[in-house]
Simulated assay, not measured.
Amino acid sequence: MQPAATSPSPPLNEAKTKRNAIRTQTVDSLWGCFFILPQMVGLIIFSLIPLVLAFALSLMSWDGFGERSFVGLDNFMGQFKDPDFRIALVNTLYYTVLTVPTGILAAMLVAVGLNKVKGKVLYRLIYFMPNITMSVAVAVVFMWLFNSDFGLINLYLKDWFGIDGPRWLTDTRFVMPSIALLSIWMGLGGSMVLFLAGLQGISPTYYEAAQIDGASKWQQLRHITIPLLSSTTFFVTIMSVIGSFQVFDQSFVMTSGGPAKASYTLVYHIYDSAFVDFTFGTSTSAAVTLFAMILTLTLLQMKISKRWVHYEE
Score class of each variant (00 low, 15 high):
167 R>D: 15
42 G>E: 09
57 L>M: 07
34 F>W: 00
74 D>F: 05
253 V>G: 07
220 Q>M: 13
179 I>C: 01
20 N>I: 07
69 S>P: 00
81 K>H: 11
217 K>Y: 07
212 I>L: 01
249 D>M: 06
256 S>I: 06
294 I>T: 07
142 F>A: 00
182 L>W: 02
168 W>M: 04
234 F>N: 15
246 Q>W: 04
185 W>K: 02
178 S>P: 02
303 K>V: 00
25 Q>N: 05
113 G>D: 04
57 L>Q: 08
29 S>T: 13
304 I>C: 14
254 M>L: 10
243 G>P: 06
259 P>S: 01
99 T>C: 13
98 L>T: 09
254 M>D: 03
191 S>K: 12
12 L>S: 11
22 I>M: 01
105 L>T: 14
191 S>M: 10
115 N>Q: 14
138 V>L: 10
253 V>N: 04
175 V>G: 07
173 R>S: 13
34 F>K: 08
6 T>R: 15
173 R>D: 10
175 V>T: 11
186 M>F: 00
128 F>E: 11
108 M>Q: 15
135 S>W: 09
196 L>Q: 14
130 P>N: 01
92 T>G: 02
277 D>F: 13
147 N>L: 05
67 E>D: 13
145 L>R: 01
97 V>D: 13
238 I>D: 09
25 Q>A: 14
16 K>M: 02
298 T>W: 09
297 L>A: 11
311 Y>W: 13
147 N>S: 08
260 A>H: 07
305 S>K: 14
109 L>D: 13
233 T>S: 14
298 T>C: 00
208 E>W: 02
289 T>I: 07
146 F>R: 05
212 I>M: 00
213 D>L: 01
112 V>E: 06
183 S>G: 08
95 Y>A: 09
264 Y>V: 05
69 S>L: 02
291 F>D: 01
290 L>Q: 06
269 H>Q: 11
308 W>A: 14
231 S>A: 15
287 A>D: 03
159 D>S: 05
248 F>N: 00
17 T>H: 09
246 Q>N: 08
155 L>F: 00
201 G>F: 05
110 V>Q: 10
165 G>C: 03
7 S>K: 14
238 I>E: 00
54 A>Q: 08
173 R>F: 07
57 L>P: 04
104 I>M: 11
140 V>N: 00
63 D>Y: 04
218 W>N: 10
98 L>M: 06
29 S>Q: 12
25 Q>P: 00
19 R>N: 09
278 F>G: 13
227 P>L: 01
233 T>V: 12
53 L>H: 12
54 A>C: 03
157 L>C: 06
72 G>E: 06
297 L>F: 14
28 D>Y: 01
182 L>N: 01
284 T>R: 05
308 W>H: 13
199 L>C: 05
44 I>A: 06
72 G>D: 09
270 I>N: 03
24 T>W: 07
109 L>H: 03
231 S>N: 14
300 L>H: 15
63 D>T: 12
174 F>C: 01
